[in-house]
Protein backbone atom coordinates (compact mmCIF):
# COMPACT_ATOMS: atom_id res chain seq x y z
CA UNK A 1 0.00 0.00 0.00
CA UNK A 2 1.17 3.47 -0.79
CA UNK A 3 1.78 5.53 2.30
CA UNK A 4 0.97 9.09 3.13
CA UNK A 5 4.42 9.99 1.94
CA UNK A 6 3.03 10.19 -1.53
CA UNK A 7 0.75 12.98 -0.51
CA UNK A 8 3.35 14.98 1.30
CA UNK A 9 5.65 14.51 -1.63
CA UNK A 10 9.38 14.34 -1.63
CA UNK A 11 9.70 15.39 -5.21
CA UNK A 12 12.82 17.15 -6.38
CA UNK A 13 11.46 20.59 -5.62
CA UNK A 14 10.59 20.03 -1.96
CA UNK A 15 13.32 17.68 -0.90
CA UNK A 16 15.11 20.67 0.43
CA UNK A 17 17.52 21.20 -2.42
CA UNK A 18 16.38 24.19 -4.43
CA UNK A 19 18.40 25.66 -7.22
CA UNK A 20 20.90 28.34 -6.25
CA UNK A 21 23.85 28.56 -3.95
CA UNK A 22 22.05 28.50 -0.64
CA UNK A 23 19.51 26.16 0.89
CA UNK A 24 17.60 25.89 4.11
CA UNK A 25 17.69 22.75 6.24
CA UNK A 26 14.07 21.67 6.76
CA UNK A 27 15.01 20.20 10.13
CA UNK A 28 16.98 22.93 11.93
CA UNK A 29 16.17 25.85 9.65
CA UNK A 30 19.80 26.86 9.16
CA UNK A 31 20.78 28.51 5.92
CA UNK A 32 23.41 26.28 4.39
CA UNK A 33 25.88 26.77 1.58
CA UNK A 34 24.76 24.17 -0.92
CA UNK A 35 28.25 23.13 -1.86
CA UNK A 36 29.09 22.37 1.76
CA UNK A 37 26.00 20.17 2.04
CA UNK A 38 26.97 18.34 -1.13
CA UNK A 39 30.47 17.77 0.16
CA UNK A 40 28.93 16.45 3.35
CA UNK A 41 27.07 13.70 1.39
CA UNK A 42 23.84 15.75 1.51
CA UNK A 43 23.75 15.77 5.27
CA UNK A 44 23.15 19.02 7.16
CA UNK A 45 26.44 20.01 8.85
CA UNK A 46 24.53 21.71 11.68
CA UNK A 47 21.95 19.09 12.72
CA UNK A 48 22.95 15.98 10.75
CA UNK A 49 19.60 15.89 8.92
CA UNK A 50 19.94 13.37 6.11
CA UNK A 51 18.46 14.80 2.91
CA UNK A 52 16.65 12.45 0.53
CA UNK A 53 18.89 11.71 -2.43
CA UNK A 54 18.29 10.25 -5.87
CA UNK A 55 19.44 6.78 -6.86
CA UNK A 56 22.40 7.85 -9.03
CA UNK A 57 23.77 10.15 -6.38
CA UNK A 58 23.43 7.33 -3.84
CA UNK A 59 25.29 4.93 -6.11
CA UNK A 60 28.02 7.52 -6.55
CA UNK A 61 28.31 8.04 -2.80
CA UNK A 62 28.39 4.33 -1.98
CA UNK A 63 30.53 2.75 -4.67
CA UNK A 64 34.22 3.10 -5.45
CA UNK A 65 34.64 5.71 -8.13
CA UNK A 66 34.13 4.46 -11.66
CA UNK A 67 33.23 0.89 -10.67
CA UNK A 68 29.47 1.02 -11.25
CA UNK A 69 28.29 -1.16 -14.09
CA UNK A 70 24.60 -0.48 -14.62
CA UNK A 71 22.42 -3.45 -15.54
CA UNK A 72 18.89 -4.04 -16.81
CA UNK A 73 18.59 -0.36 -17.73
CA UNK A 74 16.51 -1.21 -20.79
CA UNK A 75 13.51 -2.27 -18.72
CA UNK A 76 10.84 0.39 -19.04
CA UNK A 77 7.39 0.88 -17.59
CA UNK A 78 4.20 0.65 -19.59
CA UNK A 79 0.67 1.23 -18.44
CA UNK A 80 -0.69 -2.31 -18.16
CA UNK A 81 -4.15 -1.48 -16.84
CA UNK A 82 -4.94 1.77 -18.65
CA UNK A 83 -5.06 3.36 -15.21
CA UNK A 84 -6.58 6.82 -14.99
CA UNK A 85 -7.17 8.86 -11.88
CA UNK A 86 -7.04 12.65 -12.13
CA UNK A 87 -4.30 12.04 -14.64
CA UNK A 88 -3.53 8.98 -16.73
CA UNK A 89 -0.70 6.72 -15.57
CA UNK A 90 0.80 6.94 -19.06
CA UNK A 91 1.03 10.74 -18.77
CA UNK A 92 2.27 10.49 -15.21
CA UNK A 93 5.06 8.16 -16.32
CA UNK A 94 6.16 10.58 -19.04
CA UNK A 95 6.14 13.52 -16.64
CA UNK A 96 8.10 11.61 -14.00
CA UNK A 97 10.64 10.44 -16.55
CA UNK A 98 11.14 14.00 -17.72
CA UNK A 99 11.42 15.32 -14.18
CA UNK A 100 13.78 12.66 -12.83
CA UNK A 101 15.72 11.65 -15.91
CA UNK A 102 15.07 8.02 -14.93
CA UNK A 103 12.88 5.46 -16.67
CA UNK A 104 11.50 4.20 -13.37
CA UNK A 105 12.24 4.15 -9.66
CA UNK A 106 15.20 1.77 -9.45
CA UNK A 107 18.84 1.87 -10.57
CA UNK A 108 20.71 -1.42 -10.31
CA UNK A 109 23.91 -3.15 -11.31
CA UNK A 110 27.29 -4.26 -10.03
CA UNK A 111 30.15 -2.37 -8.42
CA UNK A 112 32.70 -2.26 -5.63
CA UNK A 113 32.67 -0.89 -2.09
CA UNK A 114 36.19 -0.39 -0.75
CA UNK A 115 37.40 -2.94 -3.25
CA UNK A 116 34.75 -5.54 -2.43
CA UNK A 117 32.48 -6.57 -5.31
CA UNK A 118 28.71 -6.54 -4.86
CA UNK A 119 25.35 -6.37 -6.63
CA UNK A 120 23.35 -3.26 -5.86
CA UNK A 121 19.81 -1.95 -6.30
CA UNK A 122 18.87 1.58 -5.29
CA UNK A 123 15.38 3.05 -5.23
CA UNK A 124 14.84 6.58 -6.44
CA UNK A 125 12.50 8.78 -4.38
CA UNK A 126 12.37 11.29 -7.22
CA UNK A 127 10.39 8.92 -9.45
CA UNK A 128 6.80 8.51 -8.26
CA UNK A 129 8.02 8.51 -4.67
CA UNK A 130 10.16 5.44 -5.32
CA UNK A 131 7.05 3.30 -5.66
CA UNK A 132 7.33 -0.34 -6.76
CA UNK A 133 5.54 -1.49 -9.87
CA UNK A 134 6.48 -4.13 -12.43
CA UNK A 135 9.75 -2.44 -13.46
CA UNK A 136 11.13 -2.04 -9.95
CA UNK A 137 10.06 -5.61 -9.12
CA UNK A 138 11.59 -7.07 -12.28
CA UNK A 139 14.88 -5.17 -12.04
CA UNK A 140 15.26 -6.06 -8.37
CA UNK A 141 14.48 -9.71 -9.01
CA UNK A 142 17.01 -9.86 -11.83
CA UNK A 143 19.59 -8.24 -9.55
CA UNK A 144 18.82 -10.74 -6.77
CA UNK A 145 19.07 -13.65 -9.22
CA UNK A 146 22.36 -12.28 -10.55
CA UNK A 147 23.75 -12.05 -7.01
CA UNK A 148 22.73 -15.66 -6.35
CA UNK A 149 24.25 -16.86 -9.61
CA UNK A 150 27.55 -14.99 -9.28
CA UNK A 151 27.71 -15.47 -5.49
CA UNK A 152 27.89 -11.74 -4.91
CA UNK A 153 26.82 -9.92 -1.78
CA UNK A 154 23.70 -7.87 -2.41
CA UNK A 155 22.89 -4.37 -1.20
CA UNK A 156 19.42 -2.91 -1.68
CA UNK A 157 18.79 0.68 -0.67
CA UNK A 158 15.09 1.22 -0.02
CA UNK A 159 13.56 4.65 -0.32
CA UNK A 160 9.94 4.29 -1.27
CA UNK A 161 6.33 5.10 -0.53
CA UNK A 162 5.40 1.45 -1.16
CA UNK A 163 3.74 -0.53 -3.91
CA UNK A 164 2.57 1.51 -6.91
CA UNK A 165 -1.20 1.87 -6.99
CA UNK A 166 -1.35 2.49 -10.73
CA UNK A 167 -0.32 -1.12 -11.42
CA UNK A 168 -2.65 -2.46 -8.74
CA UNK A 169 -2.41 -6.19 -8.17
CA UNK A 170 0.62 -6.42 -10.46
CA UNK A 171 2.47 -4.26 -7.93
CA UNK A 172 1.26 -6.49 -5.12
CA UNK A 173 2.69 -9.48 -6.98
CA UNK A 174 6.13 -7.81 -7.04
CA UNK A 175 6.19 -8.15 -3.26
CA UNK A 176 5.84 -11.93 -3.53
CA UNK A 177 8.22 -12.08 -6.50
CA UNK A 178 11.10 -10.23 -4.82
CA UNK A 179 10.56 -12.12 -1.54
CA UNK A 180 10.64 -15.46 -3.36
CA UNK A 181 13.87 -14.47 -5.14
CA UNK A 182 15.41 -13.50 -1.80
CA UNK A 183 14.46 -16.94 -0.48
CA UNK A 184 16.63 -18.43 -3.22
CA UNK A 185 19.45 -15.98 -2.52
CA UNK A 186 19.28 -17.07 1.11
CA UNK A 187 19.52 -20.72 0.07
CA UNK A 188 22.52 -19.87 -2.12
CA UNK A 189 24.20 -18.66 1.09
CA UNK A 190 24.64 -15.11 -0.18
CA UNK A 191 24.76 -12.01 1.96
CA UNK A 192 21.90 -9.53 1.67
CA UNK A 193 22.25 -6.12 3.28
CA UNK A 194 19.08 -4.06 3.33
CA UNK A 195 19.59 -0.35 3.88
CA UNK A 196 16.49 1.64 4.78
CA UNK A 197 16.52 5.32 3.85
CA UNK A 198 13.85 7.91 4.49
CA UNK A 199 11.12 6.90 3.76
CA UNK A 200 10.63 3.13 3.59
CA UNK A 201 6.94 2.27 3.86
CA UNK A 202 4.09 0.09 2.63
CA UNK A 203 4.66 -2.86 0.35
CA UNK A 204 8.40 -2.24 0.15
CA UNK A 205 8.81 -2.56 3.92
CA UNK A 206 6.46 -5.56 3.81
CA UNK A 207 8.68 -7.41 1.33
CA UNK A 208 12.38 -7.24 0.44
CA UNK A 209 13.30 -4.35 2.76
CA UNK A 210 12.56 -6.41 5.88
CA UNK A 211 14.26 -9.58 4.62
CA UNK A 212 17.90 -8.52 4.97
CA UNK A 213 20.43 -10.70 6.75
CA UNK A 214 21.38 -7.32 8.09
CA UNK A 215 18.97 -4.41 8.20
CA UNK A 216 20.62 -1.01 8.40
CA UNK A 217 18.89 2.36 8.55
CA UNK A 218 19.90 5.96 8.12
CA UNK A 219 19.30 8.18 11.17
CA UNK A 220 15.69 9.29 11.67
CA UNK A 221 14.48 7.55 8.50
CA UNK A 222 10.71 6.98 8.48
CA UNK A 223 10.17 3.22 8.35
CA UNK A 224 6.81 1.53 8.63
CA UNK A 225 4.01 -0.41 7.03
CA UNK A 226 1.02 1.91 7.20
CA UNK A 227 1.61 5.63 6.87
CA UNK A 228 1.41 7.75 10.04
CA UNK A 229 -1.77 9.45 8.82
CA UNK A 230 -3.50 6.14 8.11
CA UNK A 231 -2.60 4.98 11.61
CA UNK A 232 -3.80 8.19 13.13
CA UNK A 233 -7.09 7.87 11.25
CA UNK A 234 -7.48 4.34 12.56
CA UNK A 235 -6.66 4.78 16.22
CA UNK A 236 -7.37 8.52 16.67
CA UNK A 237 -4.64 8.84 19.24
CA UNK A 238 -1.42 10.80 19.48
CA UNK A 239 1.43 8.72 18.16
CA UNK A 240 4.42 8.33 20.47
CA UNK A 241 7.44 10.58 20.00
CA UNK A 242 9.73 9.27 17.27
CA UNK A 243 7.17 6.65 16.18
CA UNK A 244 8.23 4.80 13.00
CA UNK A 245 11.66 6.46 12.96
CA UNK A 246 14.80 4.35 12.51
CA UNK A 247 15.66 4.70 16.20
CA UNK A 248 12.18 3.46 17.17
CA UNK A 249 12.57 0.40 14.94
CA UNK A 250 15.97 -0.38 16.42
CA UNK A 251 14.42 -0.07 19.88
CA UNK A 252 11.61 -2.46 18.88
CA UNK A 253 14.04 -4.97 17.40
CA UNK A 254 13.61 -4.59 13.65
CA UNK A 255 16.79 -2.75 12.64
CA UNK A 256 20.26 -4.15 13.35
CA UNK A 257 21.93 -0.77 13.58
CA UNK A 258 21.70 2.82 12.45
CA UNK A 259 24.44 4.20 10.25
CA UNK A 260 25.15 7.86 9.51
CA UNK A 261 25.64 8.35 5.80
CA UNK A 262 29.36 9.06 6.11
CA UNK A 263 29.96 5.62 7.66
CA UNK A 264 27.94 3.56 5.21
CA UNK A 265 30.83 2.42 3.02
CA UNK A 266 32.85 1.37 6.03
CA UNK A 267 30.00 -0.57 7.64
CA UNK A 268 29.02 -2.32 4.41
CA UNK A 269 32.62 -3.34 3.77
CA UNK A 270 32.87 -4.61 7.35
CA UNK A 271 29.76 -6.80 6.99
CA UNK A 272 31.06 -8.20 3.71
CA UNK A 273 34.35 -9.10 5.39
CA UNK A 274 32.56 -11.01 8.13
CA UNK A 275 30.25 -12.90 5.81
CA UNK A 276 31.95 -13.42 2.47
CA UNK A 277 34.77 -15.88 2.09
Amino acid sequence: MMSDQQITGGSAKNDGIPAGLWMRCPECGDMLFKKVVEENLHVCPSCQHHFRIGARLRVKQLLDEGTFEELFADIEPIDPLGFVDKKSYADRLKAEQLKSGEKDALVCGKGFVKGRPLAIGVMDPNFMMGSMGSVVGEKLTRTIELAAEEKLPLLIVSCSGGARMQESTLSLMQMAKTSAALGRLDEAGCLFISLLADPTTGGVTASFAMLGDFILAEPKALIGFAGPRTIWNTIKQELPEGFQRAEFLQEKGFVDFIVPRKDLRLEIARLIDYCVK
Binding site: F72, D74, I75, E76, P77, I78, P80, G133, S134, V135, G137, E138, T141, E167, L170, M173, Q174, A176, K177, A180, A181, R184
Partner: peptide
Protein backbone atom coordinates in the same frame (compact mmCIF):
# COMPACT_ATOMS: atom_id res chain seq x y z
CA UNK B 1 8.59 -19.77 -8.03
CA UNK B 2 7.99 -19.20 -11.73
CA UNK B 3 4.32 -18.43 -11.15
CA UNK B 4 5.23 -15.32 -9.17
CA UNK B 5 8.48 -14.70 -11.06
CA UNK B 6 6.52 -14.13 -14.25
CA UNK B 7 4.21 -11.51 -12.74
CA UNK B 8 4.72 -8.02 -14.05
CA UNK B 9 4.18 -6.12 -17.28
CA UNK B 10 6.98 -3.99 -18.70
CA UNK B 11 8.87 -3.27 -21.90
CA UNK B 12 12.35 -4.64 -22.38
CA UNK B 13 14.74 -5.34 -25.22
CA UNK B 14 16.59 -8.00 -23.31
Amino acid sequence: YEKFREQGVYASKT
